[in-house]
């Protein structure tokens, strides 16, 4: 009968001074990471928190510096939507939605094809065109207001939706093309070639193979385009009128109940309402956004 061999005398790893140093260093590293993350989150969310806090505060306590909800009321939201004071937020929200959706849709349709051509089709100077697009995206919007105003006045477009959508597309399109080009360039050519060998035309390969794979990047770009269009103020403040103004312009022109009174609480309430669609959009498409942002990062 054989006896089981006695366990070899090994010193437990946790008691080793070297191990103890490593584990303490790791613990400190993770504490540092969490503290840094907390600081960044607080830094980013504090203005939003203050906005929500002020939105629920009575007008008389607008400048209250308490960090928690005090004198809570819903009157500010009523004021934001009240049409008798001229604060027509519901119409402005509808306008923003129309402008944002149109800009995103058109920019995506054009951007997807442009990005596909720039990344997949060989033609001379294609990267020079890409550089041109990058340059166009950095052109200051303020420089375009006067010529656009002149042009749209001449053709009678001031205060129309197209006057707000077309300039916005020119701002969003470079971002769309650049982001999608980078994504398409990282996609393996072999997938498309395999589809072509299986009998697909180039269009079918694009529609049935490339587009489903590019969905995360397209969703990410769509959200970035929508946010950019939703937050646009400069062009809209000059080219819109009362019936077509988006939320950014409507909030800026809010009036208080007294002359010379800046309605901060109503503005904060409107700001809170305006932020909600973006938060919902990002929460719904969160998974897609993360996939899109990390796509092509690891091969």
């Amino acid at each position: 009968m054989t006896q089981a061999a006695a366990p070899t005398a090994t010193r437990p790893a946790s008691t080793s001074p070297h191990r103890r140093n490593v584990s303490s260093r790791e613990r400190w590293a993770s504490v540092r990471t969490y503290v840094s993350a907390a600081v960044i989150v607080i830094w980013c969310l504090l203005p939003a928190y203050w906005m929500v806090l002020t939105a629920f505060r009575e007008v008389a306590f607008t400048y209250d510096t308490a960090f928690w909800p005090t004198h809570v009321t819903l009157d500010n939201f009523r004021t934001a939507f009240a049409t008798d004071t001229g604060n027509n937020l519901s119409l402005a929200l509808f306008n923003s939605l129309i402008i944002g959706a149109s800009v995103t849709l058109i920019a995506l349709v054009v951007g997807v094809f442009a990005a596909y051509a720039l990344s997949r089709i060989d033609f001379p100077f294609k990267f020079i065109i890409l550089g041109f697009i990058l340059g166009a995206s950095m052109f200051p919007g303020v420089a375009l207001i006067t010529p656009l105003f002149q042009l749209f006045t001449d053709i009678g477009w001031i205060g129309t939706y197209q006057a707000l959508i077309i300039p916005n597309i020119s701002f969003v399109l470079p971002l769309t093309v650049y982001t999608l080009t980078a994504f398409f360039r990282e996609m393996p050519w072999e997938l498309e070639e395999a589809a072509r060998i299986d009998g697909c035309t180039q269009g079918q390969a694009f529609r049935k193979v490339i587009m489903p794979l590019a969905a995360p990047a397209v969703f990410t770009t769509a959200i970035l385009a929508f946010i950019s269009s939703w937050n646009e103020f400069l062009i809209a403040s000059q080219l819109s009128n009362d019936s077509t103004q988006p939320v950014t312009v409507a909030i800026a022109s809010f009036t208080g109940s007294q002359p010379q009174q800046e309605p901060y609480t109503a503005v904060m309430a409107a700001g809170t309402i305006v932020t909600i669609p973006l938060v919902i959009l990002v929460l719904i498409l969160q998974k897609r956004i993360v996939e899109g942002l990390t796509a092509g990062a690891v091969k």
């Binding site: 990267f127 020079i128 550089g131 697009i133 340059g135 166009a136």
Partner: peptide
């Protein structure tokens, strides 16, 4: 490198035209 040079040329080209 060639692609980056092309992008830079295009970028500067835009501002040259402006």
């Amino acid at each position: 490198k060639a692609e980056n040079l092309d992008i830079l040329i295009g970028f500067l080209g835009f501002f040259a035209i402006a």
